[in-house]
Design a protein around this nucleic acid. Sequence first.
DNA 1: TGATATTATGTTATCGATAACATGTTAGCG
DNA 2: CGCTAACATGTTATCGATAACATAATATCA
Lengths: 352, 352
Amino acid sequence: MCHKDNTLVLADRRKRITIKDVAQAAGVSTQTVSRVMNKFSYVSGETRQRVEKVVEELGYRPSTLARSLSQQRSYTLGIVTFDLKYIGPSRTLNGIADKADELGYMLLMKELDNFNINRIDDVIDSLLARQVDGILWAVPEIRDNHAWVDERLKNIPVPVLFLAMQPRDGIPSVATNNFQGGVLATQHLLDCGRRNIGHISGPQGWWEADERKRGWQETLNAAGIKTSAEQCAEGNWSPVSGEQAFIQLLNSFPDMDAVFVANDQMALSVLREASRRGINIPKQLAVIGFDGIPEAAYFCPSLTTISQDLQLLGEQAVQNVVEMIQARQGNQSVIAQSRFIQPTLVVRESTK
Amino acid sequence: MCHKDNTLVLADRRKRITIKDVAQAAGVSTQTVSRVMNKFSYVSGETRQRVEKVVEELGYRPSTLARSLSQQRSYTLGIVTFDLKYIGPSRTLNGIADKADELGYMLLMKELDNFNINRIDDVIDSLLARQVDGILWAVPEIRDNHAWVDERLKNIPVPVLFLAMQPRDGIPSVATNNFQGGVLATQHLLDCGRRNIGHISGPQGWWEADERKRGWQETLNAAGIKTSAEQCAEGNWSPVSGEQAFIQLLNSFPDMDAVFVANDQMALSVLREASRRGINIPKQLAVIGFDGIPEAAYFCPSLTTISQDLQLLGEQAVQNVVEMIQARQGNQSVIAQSRFIQPTLVVRESTK
DNA sequence: TGATATTATGTTATCGATAACATGTTAGCG
DNA sequence: CGCTAACATGTTATCGATAACATAATATCA
């Protein structure tokens, strides 16, 4: 008899409770329920209460999926990342997640593991097929792996924002000012009285690595110091590559009295190899890193570094793309902006 | 006149190309287009080709969103993480992302930043509202923050798999065997001939921390060595807390000749503080960490550690939850399993 | 007091796909 | 040759919501 008893309905959890169930139970139309749920338009206090009571009793939760379909809007951001196993991208992701949450968006994540151009289309399509309102492209720029942008971007019907990409006209992006970071690092070493400043770079062709290197080079040149190939060695961000690059540099640039290492992980192995060889840091060799990982303060000696705020980077990215979404919503013209985030110098023992 | 010309249609990228557009252009019903897209059921070769050609020309991509609604299935996994800014969770996430991609699932991510119980319902509801097919709960178990499971879990209509949770009957989970890791670490120190083995633990009440500590304690007891409160200090995983705990331990347990530190980051600051105080490692004090972060090999001295395969953990988690989804799909009964992943000992200089 | 605005609610169409059912054609077989 | 199975395609209902439009009851104002 009490087939429609609420407790029984609740017990049947396999079946989703829809707006229709609520409408029926409250004796109103689905439209009225929708109005109550969205706190919008006219509903009498009495009806509202009745509906709200039923919603509560049945434990009704609207299907965002259905809403997305009918509104052509999902309140979801697509985010394409690269190699989360490194700490950098995941700090950025943290900022993205925080801000997205704050602004009421969810994240649909896709990891890109290689540079296959075909896959880029697939990834974008799979996000669009799920109606994302915007896309964050958090894949580092390496050689021409962003070349597709010129062709493809204009066919993507939602805003796309790029992280850690070289600023381009008409394309919105957010990045740490890596060049500036390279300048800061090198200038600091100069200020410490060093003149023979080497560099261990990230992989050539990787935009961020190239920018850091350029900062090093131009700062030295501006100070009237010539730079040559022997004063720079290339790593691939990993500790082991840093060790190799350092050994190479010791041979090719024996007068070196300071070295700017393109990330903290490689700098760590420089510190270690130096200690092994009895090179005193900072007396004989000053070392500065890049990134500002929390461990750097506990290396021995503690590592001077250029700290980049990746959390903020992620937050800014979300903020910007959401603004673009809203602008588009209101049919306003969207002005593509490229934003730089300034890194900061953190002085510790390795350059004292 | 050529209002329906393909190039024109393509140029109008604001409007989504739907299955209807394709059906009309190919002169078939939408159902036939659906059949072609899903390589299912009977379609004549001629019709198939015609439709495929139109699909290609118009650049049609089916809306996964609409499909999800009609199929009541989204091929999306909800994943709830905690504090991505630490490297651990993000290595797990990497494994999750890889496996999900391999199995054709996308990830809908939600970060949980505090232990607010109310928010747990919100988070789950927001995932369910988007029709996720399963949920991965990658939030560490701290005190009773998983207590909701008993009440709420049975009302969640999709499989939920827990990561790094204490195994419970009837609840599927995947975790590193932290107890076993603690045993491995402590046994290794015993094997090195140490008898006065201290411990720097993670935060009390944090399941993983407690398990590691238990491994330490029980191994010592089994070896006939008594443990007391003075032989253990508590940290909160961070380098700075590790330093404080170490200093405390040096005072409370002056005879200490070895220390098992509950993670590599805290072990790092132990190494540093020891070097500062002129304590020779490993001669006077052997140190072993936990986690196996890549930098550990480059600490000085390089750090012996218990390595856990978080990538694998993530992969296993996805594998399991997808199996549960498929079982449910086929109306098979789902057997909840708890799986442990064994950590391994990596010997380096700090315990030689 | 009648015209208009405001409030309150319902009805129908739509978002973009698939499921279930219906129908017609061809092929194979006894 | 007629019956059935396999093939090929179309029609209608449905997923769960919102948009657009329609309607009716009040309230307000000249």
